[in-house]
């Protein structure tokens, strides 16, 4: 009630529309436009700078050759391969767990304290600093479970870290399927799982895919969680199994820009460009996919 009174009070003052009010409005809109432009600017600046300075070093050879001469020359092929390994394995772990967890939250969980705790846990999983995830990976996977520093340890760490991304977007996709469809199935004697399996999942699969794509982009860009769990500065060979270590694009960018002296400027720029290009294109795919889906609903 008091909110209503406050509001009508505010409204009462505002009825005297003065020229000052109008100019204040114009000023405010101008400031807000400026602020928003200030956010677009760095995005454009970063992309164009990376393109301008990285493009000279960019070539097919850069993408397909191994680094040589203490990483001051050559390409980034092993890092690309390593990132694909990490993303693939973490996706294989996070996608099923995340999707089923979202199914639980959207289709089974009641509105009670257990659900509140689960949601709080998910918020925290997303909020725990990435370096703490790394410590967890070291303590749990590398040491306790004896997986050593390996693709497996790093991917599991990444999987747990990116789980909230998949859960959040899958939940949204499931929630967009109208309740009426579920009721229509239940009333026909279909069980909860049959309804989910034959009606809810088929009609939200594309939204779920969008979330999975986002997870890929997150996992590809992370550095801290893989630093001590499986990514190496430099490896002379490509990984053969999930028990090997690997190089990674993000880790490689960190290495060549901070750890190695006398690297030609173009190499870190080109590496950053490849990483950013990968992450951005995956993200854009997800965004375009989403808007395409919104345009063609089955109901």
């Amino acid at each position: 009630m008091s909110a209503v009174r406050e509001q009508s009070h505010a409204v009462f003052q505002a009825t005297a529309v003065t020229l000052a009010n109008r100019s204040r409005e114009r000023f405010a809109v101008r400031v807000l436009t400026l602020i928003t432009t200030l956010l677009i600017l760095p995005l454009i600046a970063i992309i164009s700078l990376l393109v301008a300075k990285g493009a000279p070093a960019m070539s097919l050879e850069f993408l397909l050759a191994a680094p040589v001469a203490g990483m001051t020359a050559g390409g980034i092929f092993p890092a690309i391969v390593g990132t694909l390994w990490l993303v693939g394995v973490s996706l294989a772990v996070a996608a099923p767990i995340g999707i089923l967890a979202a199914v639980y939250l959207n289709e089974y969980a009641g509105d009670n304290w257990v659900t509140r705790i689960i949601n709080l846990a998910i918020v925290n999983l997303a909020g725990v600093p990435s370096i703490v995830h790394a410590l967890f990976g070291v303590g749990a996977f590398v040491l306790f479970l004896g997986m050593g520093t390996s693709i497996l340890s790093a991917s599991l760490t990444l999987a747990i870290m990116t789980l909230p991304v998949i859960i959040a977007s899958t939940k949204e996709a499931l929630a967009s399927v109208p309740l009426a469809f579920r009721e229509a199935c239940w009333v026909l004697g279909a069980s909860r799982w049959q309804t989910i399996r034959h009606v809810v999942l088929p009609n939200s699969i594309s939204g779920i895919l969008t979330g999975v794509i986002l997870q890929v982009s997150r996992a590809a860009g992370e550095t801290a969680p893989i630093m001590f769990t499986g990514a190496a500065f430099y490896l002379p060979f490509l990984p053969q199994s999930v028990y090997d270590q690997c190089m990674a694009l993000s880790m490689h960018l960190f290495t060549v820009s901070t750890q190695v002296p006398n690297v030609p400027e173009a190499i870190p720029y080109a590496t950053a460009l490849v990483l950013l290009g990968l992450v951005m294109s995956v993200n854009l795919t997800s965004i375009l996919f989403r808007s395409y889906l919104r345009s063609r609903r089955k109901w």
């Binding site: 009426a180 009721e183 229509a184 026909l188 089955k298």
Partner: peptide
């Protein structure tokens, strides 16, 4: 399964 039910608003499944 032994009791058929029709709701007020038609719901065609997708």
């Amino acid at each position: 399964r032994r009791i058929g039910m029709v709701f007020p608003l038609p719901v065609g499944l997708p």
